[in-house]
């Protein structure tokens, strides 16, 4: 197995059969469908997910471009959290609260690779996380190249793109571009090279693309439109996935059948790792304390 993609038991393309989830999904609706299934069957009591901000309403509703962690305990709450957010949502912050004032015993969590790394570290060294490690029941990772602080998104849209935030209908990052679609149908593409400086600086030292420490990790890379590439990595992930498959929750395609396939995921992973290793080397060169590489990527 290729190291940039981490250890995994199985990789495939999948998409949910649940039409309601799929309608509002970013790609194949994998995360929402899995969590919703886990919630229904009691694998988890609730999940920490990134949902549109409730604290800062926008156009009279929740702000879809500002994600905030919530503890979803119903299917409706999960549905409200569909779609990718591109700003920082501190999900790990809520995991302790989920076991406290929310009273959960089996918590699911969704996160980008660095957050999954945090969750796993908390399980190994539960400092300030008393009673939390054994309550983490399902960890779902999302592929991630980088994230933006909310202010950066405002700057990209309003300054680089030249449109008001309120006009934005859709934001997408992919194929080298930061794409903004307005409600009047205008499409603005900003090359990601231009927005590099606006990314969260921590992302430039991250050596994980495909959430290699999660139970199940998923994302759009490599899969045809409307589908997701899914890695089943751990025993827990395998068990949950098998049960979900038996329940007829997903339709799948074997990975070799469709182009671009696994090669595209690996290409992105290698690209991220190579670029960020260079940042690490540069930091080392200028004397900033080098960071330990938590992944074996050689």
């Amino acid at each position: 197995m290729a190291a940039p993609l981490g250890q995994y038991k199985m990789v495939l393309f999948a998409r949910t059969t649940d039409k309601e989830i799929l309608r509002g999904a970013q790609n194949g609706g994998i995360v929402t469908a899995l969590l919703s299934y886990a919630l229904d069957t009691g694998i988890i009591d609730g999940a920490v997910v990134a949902a549109p901000s409730r604290s800062k309403p926008w156009r009279g509703k929740f702000d879809p471009w500002r994600s905030e962690p919530i503890v979803a305990m119903t299917r409706d709450q999960l549905l409200s959290a569909r779609k990718t957010g591109y700003n920082i949502s501190p999900n790990v912050m809520m995991i302790k609260e989920a076991t406290r004032s929310y009273g959960l015993d089996r918590v699911g969590i969704v996160g980008v690779p660095c957050q999954i790394q945090g969750v796993r570290k908390a399980q190994l060294y539960p400092i300030g996380m008393r009673g939390v490690p054994d309550k983490i029941a399902l960890v779902i990772g999302i592929y991630c190249m980088e994230v933006f602080p909310y202010q950066s998104i405002v700057q990209i849209v309003e300054d680089h793109g030249g449109v008001k935030m309120e006009s934005v209908e859709k934001i997408e990052i992919g194929k080298g571009n930061f794409t903004v679609v307005t409600e009047r149908g205008r499409t603005i593409q900003i090359p990601l090279n231009e927005t590099r400086d606006l990314e969260q600086p921590g992302c430039h030292v991250c050596l994980d693309y495909a959430a290699t420490l999660a139970d199940i990790s998923t994302g759009s890379a490599g899969s045809p439109a409307g589908w997701s590439t899914v890695f089943i990595r751990t025993k827990i992930g395998d068990e949950v996935w098998k049960r979900a498959m038996q329940a007829g929750l997903f339709e799948t395609k074997p990975i070799g059948q469709v182009e671009p396939g696994l090669g595209a995921v690996e290409k992105l992973a290698v690209e991220k790792i190579t670029r960020n290793k260079k940042t690490l080397e540069d930091r080392d060169f200028i004397g900033t304390k080098g960071l330990r590489n938590p992944y074996i990527t050689t």
């Binding site: 009591d45 609730g46 305990m73 609260e97 406290r100 004032s101 929310y102 009273g103």
Partner: peptide, 9 residues
Amino acid sequence: YNITSRAKQ
């Protein structure tokens, strides 16, 4: 924070 109804239960 107040606790949730689940936590109360």
